[in-house]
Amino acid sequence: MAAKDSGRAAAGERVAVAKTYKLFIGGAFPRSESGRTYQVTDAKGGFAANAAQGSRKDARDAVVAARKAFGTWAGSTAYNRGQVIYRIAEMLEGRRAQFVELVTAGEGLTTSTAAAAVDAAIDRLVHYAGWTDKIASVLGSANPVAGPYFSFSTPEPTGVVAAAAPQDDSFLGLVSVIAPIITSGNTAVVVSSAARPLPAIAFAEVLATADLPAGVVNLLTGDAAEIMPHLAAHGDVNALDLTGCDAELRAALERAAAGTVKRVFAGRQPNFTAPPGTARLRAFLETKTVWHPTGAVALSGGGSY
């Protein structure tokens, strides 16, 4: 844990065990392949921790893990995905105090404001848990085509989504970016806030214990400006969420995304305290239309008009 536990103990007090913050790739917690770390400070400028500084290789490993997990996660039932995402909320509720502390220290908020953000994040997961088995009925359709065919359109996950989490809103923002991506069956490679990466890695510990299959969410700490260009140009990434990128980086990443015709969600200025609409869900969905002949001659005699 951050500042408090890693700080000095007074004489006679127990020395807290400080945590080494690592990456979260394929369900494991590796150090950066590059061996690099960077110092994370709390909102007051004090030392908080050394975080792993994710590299191009880490990003590529994360894409491999996300691609591997995609078939299983996308192929699981919507009911099952809903239960897993609800389980994440349950796990988070149990560790609420830890996140309030991290957000308070990292963002320099009052405890009550930080607590409101953590509560909103938990509630957001519950919200999306209930979406998994509604998406197809809300966004799909039976198509009344003008011919003897049964035709339906159904939403499907786009694939591997690379996302830059918000820089300032280090936890509610992070959860608000990740949840809609995985709700519909996509898998994610997420670059955390650079200056405030600790809630992301603490959240990875929640994910690792929430029955979420390994690789569905992969979290990299470090600099989005360094890591995202590799993901934007990666041939096995299907879509980008650029929420956490500034305008200049967004434009560069959108250009890189064009090389493999990636879907890009840049969205408007996000306000994560407001209840979410469906734009983030829809951004990472494809529509598949299936046709089959009905084979039946109109039972009532048919005829043309």
């Binding site: 198509n143 009344p144 085509v145 003008a146 011919g147 065919y149 035709s151 359109s153 786009t158 299907n238 493999t260 015709v261 494809e286 529509t287 598949k288 239309t289 299936v290 046709w291 089959h292 002949p293």
Partner: peptide
């Protein structure tokens, strides 16, 4: 793929969404 035709092919209708996955 964005459109799957089963036991038919190249059917189009204004009521049925058409479009691609990936680099389509």
């Amino acid at each position: 793929a964005g459109v799957v035709w089963a036991n038919t092919f190249n059917r189009f209708d204004p009521t049925a969404a058409f479009g691609g996955y990936k680099e389509s």
